[in-house]
Amino acid sequence: MDNNETILAVNHLSKRFGENTVLRDINCRVSTGDVICVIGASGSGKSTMLRCINLLETPTGGEILFHGTDILSGGLSLSAYRAKVGMVFQSFNLFSNMNVLDNCMVGMRRVLKLDKGTAKEKALFYLSKVGMSPYINARPRQLSGGQKQRVAIARALAMEPEILLFDEPTSALDPQMVGEVLNVMKALADDGMTMLIVTHEMAFARDVARHVIYMDKGVVCEEGPPEQIFVSPKKQETKDFLSRFIRG
């Protein structure tokens, strides 16, 4: 990775659910402009890692440093931290009681305390970035999956976070809609957005990621540039996983 400023550093992160250890000694560093893809089989701990980073799950051990401040020891308020670390979910999680515009505005209004005019202007800007500005009056239930996910991306972008986390953003979509969401994400990457993406879209990871992490059974099994992971993986587990994937 390059010499850009480190935004997020995850050190020796671990997570147990009761007796069940799902994450062990995870280390990860995200710098400005990085696009990191996390791949691996279902149940390997990818999503849990992402949810730990956003503190939707409380890690059992290790530290998470945001610009050098440990957020687990309460160095930064949870709200302030989450406002700077955006998250896009597999199941969209758009607020069903609000229309598209309000979904994008509520965080800016209530968390960032922006005035209505500024919030609306920004919401429209980011909605047009994902091609959803004509739909500001629609309710989430009136949109297709791909449209919902694009609105969810706009909602996260509107907070102007320093880093965006994606938790399998296309896994709940049919193949046609996967494309429209991946296009948006690719455009964000080209724009220089810092992203940490958990995905099953190998072609996307190969094309867009600057760094790929392969996770297996709760540990980082292999990581490196996409050429290494996808063309000449060093570990046998990585080879097996990718060949299984290609064979489908």
Binding site: L124, K129, V130, S133, P134, I136, R139, V184, D190
Partner: peptide, 18 residues
């Protein structure tokens, strides 16, 4: 719902080009 087509930022035909 109404499409906000009068909005100058709106693009009704698919995605905005970056």
């Amino acid at each position: 719902y109404d499409l906000a087509t009068t909005d100058t930022l709106a693009h009704t035909s698919g995605m905005l080009n970056y």
